[in-house]
Computed example of a mutant assay.
Amino acid sequence: MSRRLITAIEIDGAGSHPDAWRGASVDPSAILTGELALRAVQRAEAAGIDFATFVDTLEAPADEPSRVSARLDALGLAARIAPSTDRIGLIPTVTVTHTEPFHVQASVATLDYVSAGRAGWLAEVSTSAEAAAVIGRREPAEAADTWREARYVVDVSRRLWDSWEDDAIIRDAPTGRFIDRDRIHYVDYSSPAFSIKGPSIVPRPPQGHPLVAVRLSSAEALQAGADADLVLLPGATGLDDRLAEVRAASLTPRVLLSVSVALGDGPAAGVDYAGGVEELADLVEGWNAAGVDGIHLRPASLELDVPVIAEQLVPLLRERRLLGPAVERATSLRNRLGLKRPANRYAGSGR
């Protein structure tokens, strides 16, 4: 039985294809100013797409004349785009292996404020020696260790977001009291990798907890998916078996199928789907019937494929009743996806 689909797009430089920046319609300088990404996200928002993800890695792009050898920080790019949008969700990739958990949660909480409750983050790990050398804080670790640590980071982030109760800020100017210290709490968190006393330096985010997403790129990531609100399932090959694995792991998040697509006249080699809109809509309808909650589209070219997605594919999916009406008013990303705002675990505890 089909259900209302969640829709999302990926922002990755000029597109997911490495030659996307060569397109005649692409201004390469717009990649590094954020203008190209902003244009794509605004098109997606106008079409009613639910959220955009932003690619990032700790490794520097290869320094090759045929490639764009720089990438904007995903969190910074999402913060740049937030004030110029008002409905679409913004989910940047944050690699947690070499970054401080306290700063990660504060940055994501700040994005939730900047976007008025439309933020999330795609938790990622790094096992590469190159990333370890760039950061210089520790040696590379195995995937199992990095994903185990990522789960601790997600856990402590949620605790730190709860370290301020919703009514901790009182702003009582006549008495000079601006916060109620009884509503700010220590988290006193310890893990094998780090310890944090808290509280956070950022008040509780508008959504309570910004959304946590995980890309199910390995068996270790599958286990971490248990801590997420959304999971991305890369590629459509063997979908039934992989959905069975997700169900066997007793995961409760929304599951989105993540596929690279080429719908315009740009580069198409190596993408999951290259072809017409009608045929892709047929595939999406089948994936939805198979049990996925949404579709995460990775355009080969932002300039060529996002307009086709926004102006042709999304209206067609809506015509087939796979999508509901476009959201016309500002709302939180949690509300948009039908997810409850979490209760504060420390409220009334007196800790």
Score class of each variant (00 low, 15 high):
residue 19 D to A: 15
residue 20 A to S: 14
residue 27 D to M: 01
residue 29 S to L: 14
residue 33 T to R: 13
residue 33 T to P: 11
residue 36 L to I: 00
residue 40 A to K: 10
residue 43 R to V: 10
residue 54 F to I: 12
residue 58 L to C: 05
residue 63 D to H: 15
residue 66 S to T: 15
residue 69 S to F: 14
residue 69 S to I: 10
residue 70 A to Q: 15
residue 70 A to P: 05
residue 72 L to W: 10
residue 79 A to W: 07
residue 84 S to L: 15
residue 105 Q to L: 14
residue 107 S to Q: 13
residue 113 Y to K: 01
residue 113 Y to L: 04
residue 122 L to W: 00
residue 123 A to K: 03
residue 123 A to I: 00
residue 128 S to R: 01
residue 136 G to P: 04
residue 145 D to F: 12
residue 148 R to I: 08
residue 150 A to F: 04
residue 151 R to Y: 07
residue 154 V to H: 02
residue 164 W to H: 12
residue 165 E to Y: 11
residue 170 I to Q: 08
residue 171 R to Q: 12
residue 172 D to I: 04
residue 176 G to S: 05
residue 194 F to C: 00
residue 200 S to Q: 03
residue 210 P to T: 07
residue 212 V to F: 06
residue 212 V to S: 07
residue 214 V to Q: 04
residue 218 S to E: 11
residue 223 Q to T: 10
residue 232 L to N: 04
residue 238 G to N: 10
residue 240 D to L: 12
residue 246 V to T: 08
residue 251 L to K: 00
residue 258 S to I: 08
residue 258 S to A: 14
residue 266 G to L: 02
residue 277 V to F: 07
residue 280 L to K: 02
residue 282 D to R: 08
residue 289 A to T: 11
residue 294 G to K: 01
residue 298 R to C: 07
residue 299 P to D: 03
residue 304 L to Q: 11
residue 310 A to K: 00
residue 314 V to P: 00
residue 317 L to D: 05
residue 318 R to A: 09
residue 321 R to P: 04
residue 332 S to Y: 03
residue 338 G to A: 05
residue 342 P to G: 08
residue 344 N to S: 02
residue 349 S to H: 06
